[in-house]
């Protein structure tokens, strides 16, 4: 379980210096951050694409629950863990 918490009403924000990038050579999307990258799987990419600096965690999970065939509580838990993992690595911030 991730140690960094993110509340349902928190707004995740991709900070300056971090951006989504399509790696043509590997044919995959990555999250580019200073001195490192995160290789993204399709679900990780879908989560990050919902982050626009205004959507709350609740809103993001609601959109994803409508698109994906999985129980909403599972999607909420997985999204929270994923974003908390990015926060621990300091490549995601939240506004409360």
């Amino acid at each position: 379980m991730a140690q960094v918490g993110i509340a349902p009403s928190d707004v995740p924000v991709i900070p300056r210096g971090v951006r989504l990038h399509f790696d043509k050579v590997r044919d995959l999307w990555v999250l580019l951050a200073p001195e490192r990258t995160i290789n993204l799987d399709p679900v990780g990419l879908a989560i990050l694409r919902e982050i626009d600096g205004t959507a709350t965690l609740d809103a993001i999970t609601e959109v994803l629950a409508a698109k994906y065939d999985a129980p909403a509580p599972q999607i909420t838990a997985d999204v929270r863990d994923f974003l908390a993992g990015l926060m621990e690595r300091r490549i995601l911030e939240v506004r409360t």
Binding site: D41, V43, G44, F82
Partner: peptide, 12 residues
């Protein structure tokens, strides 16, 4: 679409 738990694969 099918949901799979997203994994953070971090990468000199």
């Amino acid at each position: 679409m099918a949901w799979t738990k997203p994994v953070i694969r971090e990468i000199g």
